[in-house]
Design a protein around this nucleic acid. Structure first.
Lengths: 259, 259
DNA sequence: GAGTGGTCTAGACCACCGC
DNA sequence: CGGTGGTCTAGACCACTCA
């Protein structure tokens, strides 16, 4: 078993917190690396001389921090180092669209990931109030809804739902499963809506149970949400894209002038 | 006690998950509103006829989702609705500095919060490798470190640590507790470093125990981290600011051109 | 002091995994 | 099959809050 500090009775922290701290330390200094298995519950109860529930509480603590992940029947494993992807503000540059790449795929390939998309579902529906407000249309107006899930190295890392006012999407490949080279944005530009700017609203929260399933998240792993609104050169909102990303897999980078 | 569904033995979910679901449902339909107290552990053990640990596990589930918050000796309470704050990219506009307001205070007042700062600690220290890389200096070079905590309506919502290369800070109010009107950025500009652009790296994760204390976060509440690097008109990095924000209190807004 | 949640013990049975 | 984590029981003592 790896080297761990024994309990310190004079320490005012509870035993379970001390055990959690010892394991966290082992991970931080690299005695336990990504993918390594933690000592089993029975090894830890033996080493520390505590009840099983105490050890489980310590491990629960690390799960809540997102440091480790339990696999039933196999063990508790150190979560792999963040698949840090940097999405610079230039990720929607027209240059990529001209080369025929959609934003996610272009960025993922740049950092050397094998990227993929699945669960594409396209349909038309009346728009909800919050999206309608961003699009500057009336709630209930028809929009084309495109739902999809992005994979990096086969692991789901992001779900995205785009809303495009039906009048902009009808008669284009936006209503098809495959939008063609350059994706939605290339089709919008061809349809007479050259894109001028994006507004992104970024937040973080815990996932809903459905999001946990879709992104295969363990308990205690947060999500980053980004709602992007795309405007054309007339200042008309032409798309709202609502994305939910596994937080561990993303660092979003923004570059802006001081003005 | 409020109305709750009894356990369903034919349900394939564990009792603790069923209890969690019943409580979640009560919150979602409004039988329990923000600030309301949940039935006590002993009430729930009695009602469901299960052991206390089973009830505690159900409550742990809701804590992890950020729905409720336990207060020792008082009870478990439904978390109040998020205090959403929007920080537009223009929040560091020179215009605010010229009017004598630091960024956080200007923004908070705009949305009608009573803002505050505490725990200011200023010292000089050798810089860590990750910050040094962003500042374009050598690890171990001296930097002025400014640590502070921001409050909105008396509640801590963000901690911030700024690192300024000592050569830029010495002899200015940056080394004082009170940096004067306009804050650090105004002093840097006066010292011959007019600011040109910022780069922000945004991510989300679970807080460390120390961060949970500093931001008074319940378990299961994520943080948004923003590392901002400020560049002057010569392209020199003059400050790195590492912030940790209570996720529920923030929506970050970025506006950028499509290019 | 009564009631609350926080921590802990010492067991038990189960489901899942890999050999 | 043995080892792993998942769930559960029935107690115990403690620290905190509030009347």
């Amino acid at each position: 078993m790896i080297q761990l500090d024994q309990l310190d009775r004079s320490d005012d922290r509870s035993p379970y917190l001390q055990i959690a701290a010892a394991l966290r330390e082992a991970i931080n200094v690299g005695r336990l690396g990504p993918g390594d298995r933690l000592p089993s519950e029975s090894e830890l109860t033996g080493f520390y001389g505590v009840a099983r529930m105490t050890v489980r509480q310590a491990i629960q603590e690390l799960k809540t921090e997102g440091l480790v992940m339990a696999e039933h029947g196999r063990g508790v494993f150190v979560r792999s180092a963040p698949v840090v992807r940097r999405l610079a503000s230039e990720r929607f540059a027209r240059q990529h669209r001209d080369r025929g790449k959609a934003a996610f795929l272009a960025e993922a390939e740049k950092v050397g990931y094998q990227a993929g998309v699945d669960s594409i579902r396209v349909h038309e529906a009346p728009v909800a109030a919050d999206v309608a407000e961003r699009l500057g249309i009336k709630a209930g107006d028809p929009v084309v809804v495109r739902e999809r899930r992005y994979l990096a190295n086969g692991e789901p890392v992001e779900t995205a739902t785009s809303y495009i006012p039906a009048e902009f999407a009808r008669g284009t490949a936006i209503t098809e499963n495959d939008t063609g080279p350059g994706g939605i944005y290339a089709r919008l530009e061809e349809a007479g809506h050259p894109l001028a700017r994006f507004v992104e609203e970024v937040a973080a929260r815990m996932p809903t149970p459905a999001e946990r399933r879709a992104l295969q998240l363990g308990p205690g792993v947060p999500v980053l949400t980004v709602v992007r609104t795309a405007f054309d050169e007339q200042g008309v909102a032409v798309e709202v894209c609502d994305t939910v990303k596994a937080a561990y897999a993303y660092v979003l980078e923004y570059d802006f002038p001081a003005r």
